[in-house]
Amino acid sequence: MMAIPLGFLVVGIAIFAMADCAWGEDDPKVILSEFEKAWPDDRTPWRTAGDESWKAYALSMRRLVALGDRAVPALLDGLSSDRFQVRAFSARVLGFLGSEKAVPKLVALLDDKRPEVALLAADALGQIRTPDALKALEAAKAKHTKGDVLLHIGRALERQVALEEDVREQILKISSDNIGTAKVGAPAPDFALKDSAGKEWTLSSFKDKQMVVLVFNYGDG
């Protein structure tokens, strides 16, 4: 007789555990707190052997962008975090989401004491591009005279368009299945990206034709 209720109990716990897990996958607050743990303010800012915390950055970004508007309230809270890495990251994701609701808080963050936050707020405002966002960027440009924040304010104003939809689509292609999969001796992960003239280049189109040297550079100014 005891076996039946015990069985129910076990099944009950299993279902509860699965439901909890599914909620965690989807809850923007949980995603943001996982990012906060993986990316502390005093994190070493360069690549060291074995450090895989950058994957948490990329995957948290992807999961929040995938949630779209549902992620916005948690990200707006993130902009008020006492951790500058959380403020900076939240600003970056809100820019990718093109969230007009975030504009007033992002404008305030142009004066953040941490330049890491102010410059990503500028990037995000340039991507969102409402009249208020552009007005605030112009005002901030007159106020700042030097440094990285001014550089990003200038770049944000120079953008001709809001964030392109294909950038969001590229972010959604990041997954735990393909992240960090490029390995010597293994097939190169395929991709298609556009050059500055808008022409699309697909890595696999070179197969059986020619070798490819893929160089990752970084924007400096």
């Binding site: 800012p45 360069w46 690549r47 950058w54 994957k55 950055y57 990329a58 970004m61 990718f96 941490r114 330049p115 890491e116 410059l119 990503l120 990285d148 550089l151 990003h152 392109e164 950038v167 969001r168 689509e169 590229q170 972010i171 292609k173 990041i174 393909n178 992240i179 960090g180 999969t181 490029a182 992960p189 991709f191 990206l193 893929l214 990752f216 970084y218 924007g219 400096d220």
Partner: peptide, 20 residues
């Protein structure tokens, strides 16, 4: 711009450039 290819190639978010 979406860090997709740099993520697949394992090089994204691993360098401080100025303050970014």
């Amino acid at each position: 711009a979406g860090f997709w290819v740099s993520s697949m190639y394992g090089v994204a978010f691993q360098m401080r450039i100025h303050t970014d």
